[in-house]
């Protein structure tokens, strides 16, 4: 009886043994196989890496101090400047430059493209201005005209003199900038500026996608901070790239000229025509705003003479009028 009982048990054991060994075998084969595959893949990728490494493929790169160097292709990394880089280079400015802007009032017809381009670049609301076109009238019997008014970037800036925390400063290329990271929002500079060029951020910055991850750029004032000051920056970030400011390029009427005083040349943002700065100022009777204050602005105005457009109230465009009458 006991033998009878044992036999099927033995049989079962044998079956079990056979079954488990098959399973084990398959398991082992799977393990070894996948290990071999991974190993081969690793070996192959390593081989490829080594092959590429020794391929000698190089690329020519221009260094910051203007040297052309050759480096292996695989060592090229995308460069993203950090806050420290922005702050350092933003404080120093561009060597050997003296930026200057000329605004030809005879051509301005309040298209407001400069204002829009500026607000777009600096993430401002429609009622926040770094540049604005004003309606001007000197006295009752003189004509009205439009005047775009950015920051004058004075060579003797009263706003910088009064800043108690060194948040606003002047650079070697003439641009007056603000560090929103330092600004305490005391608004001394606002009251010191005779041109009312500065604005206070009463609200949280306009939420623009991607701003949260963005590193604060002192040359763009984006993303700025609530309770601090900002103003026109002469698009310092663009000048670093060799492109004219946002407002200058956006004007459809050829109002703005921009250039380097050291080169005695300014380029029109619309027509891209380059002219001698000294000749342009001389031939057109240029002037600066409130020269009696001794602030020495870097923005020149050409008088609104020989205007070829009719003065219209802001908001009343030529197009609208034509179609309403």
């Amino acid at each position: 009886m006991s033998e009878k009982k044992k036999k099927p048990a033995e049989e079962k054991n044998l079956d079990e043994i056979l079954d488990t060994s098959r399973r084990d075998f398959l398991k082992k084969v799977g393990l070894v196989g996948s290990a071999a595959l991974t190993g081969a893949a690793a070996l192959y990728s390593g081989y490829r890496f080594e092959k590429e490494k020794h391929s000698g493929a190089t690329i020519k790169v221009l260094t910051e101090d203007n040297r052309l160097v050759e480096i292996p292709v695989e060592q090229v990394k995308d460069y993203k400047p950090g806050l420290k880089v922005y702050q350092t280079r933003g404080r120093e400015g561009i060597e050997g430059k003296r930026w200057v802007m000329v605004i030809d009032l005879s051509k301005c017809r309040n298209a407001r493209k400069c204002v829009e381009a500026c607000q777009d670049a600096h993430h401002l609301r429609p009622y926040e201005y770094h540049i604005n076109t004003l309606v001007m009238q000197e006295s009752k019997n003189t004509p009205r005209y439009f005047m775009p008014k950015p920051c004058q970037h004075c060579d003797n800036p009263p706003c910088v003199s009064v800043c108690p925390v060194d948040a606003t400063f002047k650079r070697q290329d003439g641009i007056v900038l603000i560090d929103n990271e330092r600004c305490i929002g005391c608004r001394f500079c606002m009251s010191a500026c005779p041109y009312s060029a500065r604005m206070f951020h009463w609200q949280e910055p306009l939420a623009v996608e991607g701003d949260k991850e963005r590193v604060y750029d002192i040359e763009l004032n984006v993303p700025h901070k609530k309770g601090t000051i900002s103003k026109c920056l002469f698009s310092a970030d663009r000048l670093r790239e060799g492109i004219m400011p946002y407002c200058v390029s956006a004007c459809p009427n050829g109002v703005f000229y921009f250039g380097d005083e050291n080169e005695d040349a300014v380029t029109n943002g619309t027509t891209k025509e380059t002219v001698r700065l000294s000749e342009l100022l001389e031939q057109n009777g240029a002037y600066r705003l409130l020269p009696e204050l001794g602030t020495k602005p870097r923005v020149y105005y050409l008088p609104p003479k020989n205007r070829i457009f009719e003065f219209r109230e802001p908001g009343e465009t030529e197009y609208k009028e034509q179609h309403n009458t």
Partner: peptide, 8 residues
Amino acid sequence: QRRFGHLA
């Protein structure tokens, strides 16, 4: 050559 254009 000037910074932003060519002066004729």
